[in-house]
Amino acid sequence: MTPLRLTVLVAVMIALVACRSGSVKPTIPPVANVDIPRFMGDWYVIAHIPSYPEREAYAAVESYALRPDGRIQTTFRYRKGALDGPLKAMHPIGTVREGSQGAVWDMQFVWPIQAEYVIVYLGDDYQQTIVGRSKRDYVWLMARTPRIPTADYEARIRQIAALGYDVSRIRKVPH
């Protein structure tokens, strides 16, 4: 193997290891406990700081289903560009981090890369949640219904700001 190929190989391996967040403790505070079976089901994305594919998402819904192996089958479906736009979907697999009481997941969209997913707010009735990341690059405000009361929305946005997010980047998702 040439020195150039070896250097490229080592650089790629370092990048892949750096992308894996499974062993890194989150720096954003997770909730104390999540009842995973109760958390399963549909969550409407009310607002978010979107990842690249979500920038033009309308009618976005994140659905979770517990698999027999304990991992979480996720389906993120949305309309692209408009409420009547083409239906798109992504299917990452979630793995609950050991010792996190269900509040920290690793989401795998493409092997071997896993993205940190931290439940930072969860209503006692499991009707609203905020999912964030230690990098404060993406955040999702979700609810069991496509709309929430204005007072709840404003309170959740204040919580997101208190977590260190730039709330001017938040996009409301049309439903």
Rank of each mutant, 00 (worst) to 15 (best):
P3K: 10
L6F: 10
L6S: 11
V12A: 09
M13T: 12
I14W: 04
I14R: 04
L16M: 13
V17Q: 11
C19W: 07
S21W: 12
G22I: 02
V24A: 11
V24R: 11
I28G: 04
P29L: 14
N33H: 15
R38Q: 13
G41I: 05
W43L: 03
V45N: 04
P50E: 06
E56N: 13
E56P: 04
A57T: 03
Y58R: 12
E62I: 13
D69V: 08
T75I: 12
F76C: 07
R77S: 15
R77F: 12
Y78Q: 02
K80P: 01
A82N: 07
G85C: 00
P86V: 06
P86A: 15
H91F: 13
H91Q: 10
I93P: 01
G94K: 01
R97G: 02
R97Y: 09
G99P: 04
S100C: 04
Q101E: 14
D106R: 02
Q108E: 15
I113L: 09
A115I: 15
V120L: 03
V120S: 01
G123C: 05
D124L: 14
D125A: 11
R133H: 13
S134P: 01
K135E: 12
W140H: 02
L141R: 03
A143H: 03
R144A: 03
P149D: 08
P149Q: 08
T150P: 06
T150Y: 10
A151S: 09
A151K: 07
D152W: 11
E154T: 10
R156Q: 10
R156N: 13
Q159S: 11
A162H: 00
V167W: 06
R171E: 02
V173T: 14
H175K: 12
